[in-house]
Computed example of a mutant assay.
Amino acid sequence: MSTLLEVSGVSVTFDGFRAINNLSFQIGPAEMRAIIGPNGAGKTTFMDIVTGKTRPDEGRVLWGEKSQSLTRMSEAKIAQAGIGRKFQRPTVFEDQSVFDNLAMALRKPRGPLAVLWYRPARADAERVHELAAEIGLSDQLSRKSGELSHGQKQWLEIGMLLAQEPRLLLVDEPAAGMTHEEREHTTALLVEAAKTRAVVVVEHDMEFVRRLNCKVTVLHEGAVLAEGSLDHVTANQQVIDVYLGR
């Protein structure tokens, strides 16, 4: 299988604390991966490195078929290259409708003139309706985003990321604060997305991870402790000692 993202021998230190320690990780172009591990394991720092927010002290982060070095690219260029990130708290434009949030997120030229003269074309409206159906918000398009439930806002933000047509989606704790039904819908949404792109989910909820039914990477002290199916990693004594036994 070809590799979309390859992280190789990456380390980063903050004020003497080694947050990432010789970490290596790779994911294919249409693959779901869950990342688990105790607080302070390096999960957020890993996503910060991939998106260019944090620069590693050493190691390589290679992207795409041409193995471009992400460590040489700005955050904006990395996003344009096809890496989308969803943070834990949903960030949507609360005063704008669901339709407008999705329309604003569509992958379009972003120069000053293009933005100034932008008028939604029929194709844009059709794409917004497609996205709304995909995330389960077709009946909410005219509603102000601020009126949505927590779960619906999470779906809208995932929809806004999908609108940018990323090849890799990094999602931080999507199940937090959701009802059982919302979590089931979120699982289906992410599994569907992973059919056509790489999806990395950082999550603490083991039941949610089990439903994703994917390969799991366990981080501890900034390095990979174990990797494999959820059953495989949860049977690993070291994983039990540092994470599951808590």
Score class of each variant (00 low, 15 high):
Met1Lys: 13
Ser2Ala: 14
Thr3Lys: 11
Glu6Phe: 00
Ser8Ile: 09
Thr13Ser: 10
Ile20Val: 15
Ile20Met: 04
Leu23His: 00
Glu31Asp: 07
Arg33Trp: 03
Ala34Ile: 09
Ile35Asp: 05
Asn39Gln: 05
Asn39Leu: 05
Gly40Pro: 01
Gly40Lys: 02
Thr45Cys: 05
Asp48Thr: 07
Asp48Gly: 06
Val50Met: 09
Gly52Asp: 01
Thr54Asn: 01
Arg55Leu: 14
Pro56Glu: 00
Gly59Pro: 05
Arg60His: 14
Glu65Gln: 13
Ser67Ile: 05
Ala76Thr: 12
Ile78Gln: 00
Gln80Cys: 05
Ala81Gln: 08
Phe87Trp: 15
Pro90Met: 00
Pro90Lys: 02
Thr91Lys: 14
Phe93Met: 13
Glu94Ser: 14
Ser97Cys: 04
Ala103Asp: 13
Ala103Met: 15
Leu106Asn: 12
Arg107Ala: 08
Arg107Thr: 03
Ala114His: 10
Arg119Gly: 00
Ala121Trp: 10
Val128Pro: 01
His129Thr: 11
Ser138Ile: 05
Leu141Gln: 07
Arg143Ile: 04
Gly146Val: 09
Leu148Phe: 00
His150Cys: 03
Gly151Lys: 04
Gln152Trp: 11
Trp155Leu: 02
Leu156Asp: 09
Ile158Phe: 10
Met160Ala: 12
Leu162His: 08
Gln164Pro: 03
Glu165Pro: 02
Asp172Leu: 04
Asp172Cys: 11
Pro174Asn: 13
Gly177Lys: 08
Thr179Lys: 06
His180Arg: 13
Arg183Phe: 03
Glu184Met: 08
His185Gln: 14
His185Arg: 15
His185Ala: 14
Thr187Gly: 04
Ala188Ile: 10
Thr196Tyr: 04
Arg197Trp: 06
Arg197Asp: 03
Arg197Met: 10
Val200His: 06
Phe208Ser: 04
Leu212Asn: 09
Lys215Thr: 15
Lys215Ser: 09
Val216Ala: 10
Val224Arg: 07
Val224His: 01
Ser229Pro: 00
Ser229Glu: 01
Asp231Lys: 12
His232Val: 10
Gln237Met: 09
Val242Arg: 01
Val242Ser: 00
